[in-house]
Design a protein around this nucleic acid. Structure first.
Lengths: 323, 323
DNA sequence: GTGAAAGCGCTAACAT
DNA sequence: ATGTTAGCGCTTTCAC
C-alpha cells in the first residue's frame, strides 16, 4: 500500500498522504520490520564485519573506522569475532551470510577453503582487510606485514643496531605477526645479521608479558642492542621493565613494536614502531563496499595499500652503542 | 517439508531422511535464510548489544564476555556503538529492534525517554549493564560508580592522603565517570577534605592526555599528595610523567585510576585502582537474557551487583608523605 | 498517485 | 515420520 512507500521515502506519494502516514505511524509507535523488508527485497542493509579479536585496541579501532565509513549511507555494520579460530570463522561467516548482508568485510587473507567458497558464492562485495600478503577473494585494503617487518629491520640496521632479539605473543594464531617476524628476519639476513635470541608466550599479548619476557631475555642475552616485539603492547611492557631496571632505552637497547598505539605516548619516542592506519583501513573498506554496491562492475577486485610508516623516535638520533 | 525439520535438528525425523537431507544440502552448498526463518517464527536468535565506545579496551572486553556467555546457546550477539550520543543510541536501538532480536543488552541507565519506550514496548528481556545508580528498565548487571568513587576516596584517606587533585577526560559525555567523581568528592567531604585542584580535557581519554595534564596539575599545585583520575588510561599517563620527572609514586604523590586494566602491569602496584569485572558483567548479562528467554516470569527485573574491589597496591604500605 | 495481487523462504499447526 | 496449508510483513509488479 501507500503506507509502505511513504515510510520508505519513495517519491510518487502525495505530500498529504505521506504526512498522514507518518503521523499515524508515530501515533501507534510503529517501526518497520527489517526481516520482512529484507526477505521481500532479497537484500539487507547490513554489512558483515569480521575481526579476529577484541583483546587489544587495534580491531576496535578498525571497527570504529568501518562505522564511520558507513555513517549516513543507510548501511549498518554487524560485527563478529572469531578469536583467531578458523572453525569459528566459518561458522560466523555462514551465520552472517544467512542474514543476507549487502557486503562483507573480513580480516586477513587466510580463510579456510570452505569459508572462501561461502564468501565467493554469496555474490556480494567482499573486502579483506589488514593484510595484502596473499591471494584475495575480491577487494583488499591493508598492507604487507612482511614488508612492514623488513622495513623495520632496515631502519634498525641503519640506526646501527646489530644484535637482535625477538619477543612475541600469540604467534600460534596470529598469522600477521608471524609474517612481520619473517620479513624482519629475512631483511636482517640480507645484512648478514640474524635474530640471535627469542622468547615467546602463548596466549594473548599483554604489557605484563612483555615486561616479564624482556627481563628474562636481557638476563640470558645481556649483549642484545635491539629487541623486536610482535606488537606495541608487548614492547611497551619491555620498556616498563627497562625504565625500572635502569636499562638505557634506546641508547643501550632499542625496542621496536608495531601499530603505533597511543599508549606509546606515555613515553614519547622511546619505542620505535610502525604506525598502521587502522581507522583509515576500516573506513576505506566500508567505502569500497558502498562503491561496489552502486557500481558492481568497476569495483571488483580493488586493492588498496596503506603501508605503515616506520617511526624511530629517539632512536633516530642515537648511534650504535658500540660506537 | 521434512528438509526443514532435518536441518533444524528436530527430532521426529528418521535417521535415513535426515542423512539424505543433510547430504543434499551440503552438495548444493545450501545454507538457510535467517530472514525467512525469523520472520516466520516471529523471533530471531540475535541478542542486541549496545556499547558507548570502542576507544579503550573496556567495552571490547565487555563484548568478549557477552560472546562467551552466548557461546553454545544458539544465540548470537549483534554489536552496536553509540559514541556516547543519545540520538545515535535511539536510532541504533530502533534499527536493532527492527531485526526482532530475542533480547537486548545496553550500557548504562541513562537512555532518553524515547529509547526507554522503544525498549519497553519491544517486550523482550532487556539488561542494562555497567551501572546500578538509577532506575532500571528491566534487569541490571553492574555496580555503583558513585560507591566506587567513594570507596576509593575512603581508601586513600585511610592511607593518609589529604590533598587531593582530580584529572578527567570526556566528562561531557561519560556519565559514569562523573558519578565516580561525585562519589569521590562526597566521601572526601565527609572527612572534611576536598578536591582542591582539577584539570579536564575534552574528548576521549588517553595516556598522552594524562601525562600532559598531570605535569600541568603538579606544576600549578605542587603540594598535592594524591590525584584521582577518570580512568586508568589517564592515570597511567600520569604515572609515566611522574616516573620521567622523578616524582616519587606513591610516596610523594599517590595516583588512583579506575578499571584495573592489564596495562597497569607495566608498573605493578604503582597505581591504585578499582578493578571492574568487565568480562564477568558481559557474561552475566548474556546469561540473564538466556534465562529470561527460558523462564519469562521469574527473571523479570533481576539486579546483579558486581562492585569493583579497590586495590591500593604499593600505597598500602606507605604512610602519609607528611609523616 | 494509489491499490490489488503475488510471492520472498521459511515455520506452525494440523492432517495423515 | 512425513506432507499439507496457511501466513509471517513486507516489496514488487502491474493495473488503474
Amino acid at each position: 500500500m501507500t503506507a509502505s512507500r511513504a515510510l520508505r521515502g519513495d517519491r510518487d506519494v502525495s505530500a498529504a498522504s505521506r504526512e498522514r502516514v507518518i503521523k499515524a505511524a508515530e501515533d501507534i509507535g510503529y517501526f518497520g520490520n527489517h526481516l520482512a523488508a529484507s526477505l521481500s527485497s532479497a537484500r539487507s542493509d547490513l554489512i558483515g564485519v569480521i575481526v579476529p579479536s577484541l583483546t587489544n585496541i587495534v580491531f576496535p579501532q578498525v571497527m570504529s573506522g568501518v562505522t564511520d565509513g558507513l555513517l549516513g549511507t543507510g548501511f549498518q555494520p554487524a560485527f563478529g569475532v572469531t578469536d583467531y579460530d578458523q572453525d569459528r570463522e566459518y561458522e560466523l561467516v555462514g551465520r552472517m551470510l544467512s542474514w543476507r548482508p549487502a557486503g562483507m568485510i573480513i580480516t586477513g587473507l587466510e580463510q579456510s577453503e570452505k569459508t572462501r567458497r561461502l564468501l565467493l558464492e554469496a555474490n556480494i562485495p567482499i573486502v579483506q582487510i589488514m593484510d595484502t600478503d596473499g591471494v584475495a577473494i575480491d577487494s583488499v585494503v591493508g598492507f604487507s606485514h612482511q614488508t612492514a617487518g623488513s622495513e623495520m629491520a632496515e631502519a634498525l640496521v641503519s640506526a646501527g643496531r646489530s644484535r637482535f632479539g625477538y619477543i612475541g605473543c600469540n604467534l600460534e594464531s596470529d598469522v600477521r605477526a608471524n609474517k612481520r617476524k619473517q620479513g624482519f628476519a629475512d631483511a636482517l639476513s640480507r645484512h648478514d645479521y640474524a635474530i640471535t635470541a627469542s622468547l615467546f608466550c602463548a596466549g594473548l599479548s599483554s604489557v605484563g608479558d612483555g615486561r616479564r619476557l624482556t627481563q628474562e631475555l636481557l638476563m640470558q642475552s645481556p649483549d642484545l642492542d635491539c629487541i623486536y616485539y610482535s606488537n606495541d603492547d608487548v614492547a611497551f611492557g619491555g620498556l616498563c621493565y627497562c625504565l625500572e631496571a635502569r636499562v638505557d632505552v634506546p641508547a643501550r637497547v632499542a625496542l621496536a613494536g608495531f601499530n603505533g598505539l597511543s599508549l606509546l605516548q606515555g613515553f614519547p619516542g622511546l619505542i620505535a614502531t610502525s604506525t598502521t592506519r587502522r581507522r583509515d583501513i576500516g573506513r576505506a573498506s566500508a567505502e569500497i563496499i558502498i562503491e561496489s554496491l552502486q557500481n558492481p562492475q568497476q569495483t571488483k577486485g580493488r586493492q588498496l595499500t596503506m603501508q605503515p610508516a616506520v617511526e624511530l623516535g629517539a632512536l633516530q638520533k642515537t648511534c650504535s652503542p658500540s660506537d
